[in-house]
Design a protein around this nucleic acid. Structure first.
Lengths: 206, 206
DNA sequence: ATTATCTATAGATCTATAGATAATGC
DNA sequence: ATTATCTATAGATCTATAGATAATGC
């Protein structure tokens, strides 16, 4: 059984990720998770004890994935800073495009249950803090080199995150209201990407 | 009883608005709504038949409030277009600041139940369509006058909406991760407002 | 007579667990 | 012997309604 070991456990995890991501904690059903995982409902409690415990593990994974992805985008290459930023914006945009449910999921769960983040607060804040420091150094240098205007690292990153994430947060609304009649999803998304790169570019201009 | 008429009905509506806004449809409890409204739970069904019907009315109100607010911000005064835009950004930002739960509420409910918007799709899309047309005319004129660069109305409005709404979508995360240790909420919010105005200003620059 | 309100409870759903049975590894 | 899985059901919670009682307006 070594071969099969944890197969069902993994199936439950996979089904749970999907269920929680799409419906949120409140909307998720452990019965639905078990069904989609192809196991009886009792197995879920056998491996994970409770809905809350199953959720917590998955939630932590997502948070670390998001933070890890963000902090890895700025690599101090020898490219001009403004080019580095544009590349980072593009990569970050594509990451969300590949995981379009993540922004709403993270925002929803932290908004409705702020206490959940306490578990990972310290890890995340130090990681993010260090990341801000790195970016700020690059900014200061580029500013000294007269390449860009002066700007706070957090401000710039918040701008980028806002524009990128909101594109996908708003997609269901966009679709529902008028998109399908006018232009295709993927075309609109590509348009937004180019627009965001342009906006950030102009924001950094002197 | 003329005086008291509908008092309890209004109390239920008020409590329901708060409950749905803060917890979403899935997280909301009709028992909780009745309790906060100071009535027995049966009253809720007496006036509104079902949780779904109670929700639908409230949801429609919020949607129309949001759309109505957005479309009223651009008033074709004789001020320079770029000044009009900055004023609109500022007013829109303040509107969300006064109703910080609305962005997540609207996004969450449409994402999890896209069919809900069908009811108001037509009204909203024509309203928004007309609004886009008005703004586009102002843009074209300002561009002809050499005041701004060329830009699509929808693109500009999506930029503004992204930056403004995301500020408040991300506040709980910001608070949870590090804000409280560094700066006060209201200071951060004011910083974001100024930053967004500046970003949009630069975006429109030739 | 009609409208508003309460008590009591049905009915549905969801999470969780107890206990029996089957499969695996030593 | 231990781990994995299933059946059956408990226990909690939530929405909804039936039916009785009180208040109001004509």
């Amino acid at each position: 059984m070594t071969k099969h070991r944890n197969n069902k456990e993994m199936a439950i995890l996979e089904a749970a990720r999907k269920e929680f991501l799409e419906k949120g904690y409140d909307g998720a059903r452990t019965t639905s998770i078990a069904k989609n995982a192809g196991v009886t409902h009792a197995m879920l409690h056998y491996y994970f004890k409770s809905k809350e415990k199953l959720f917590t593990g998955i939630f932590d994974d997502f948070i670390h994935q998001v933070v890890g992805n963000m902090t890895v985008l700025f690599n101090d290459s020898d490219k001009p800073f403004i080019q580095q930023v544009e590349d980072a914006v593009s990569l970050h945009f594509d990451f969300i495009k590949d995981n379009p449910h993540i922004p709403l999921f993270v925002i929803r769960e932290i908004s409705t249950h702020p206490e959940r983040i306490e578990l990972i607060k310290d890890t995340v804040s130090t990681t993010v803090g260090g990341f801000f420091g790195t970016v700020q150094k690059s900014i200061d240098q580029a500013y000294a080199n007269n390449e860009i205007c002066d700007i706070d690292a957090m401000t710039l990153l918040f701008d980028i995150l806002s524009l990128n994430a909101f594109t996908f947060l708003a997609m269901p609304i966009f679709n529902a209201v008028f998109a399908s009649q006018i232009i295709d999803d993927s075309i609109f998304i590509e348009m937004r990407k180019q627009e965001i790169i342009k906006t950030i570019h102009k924001r950094l201009a002197k």
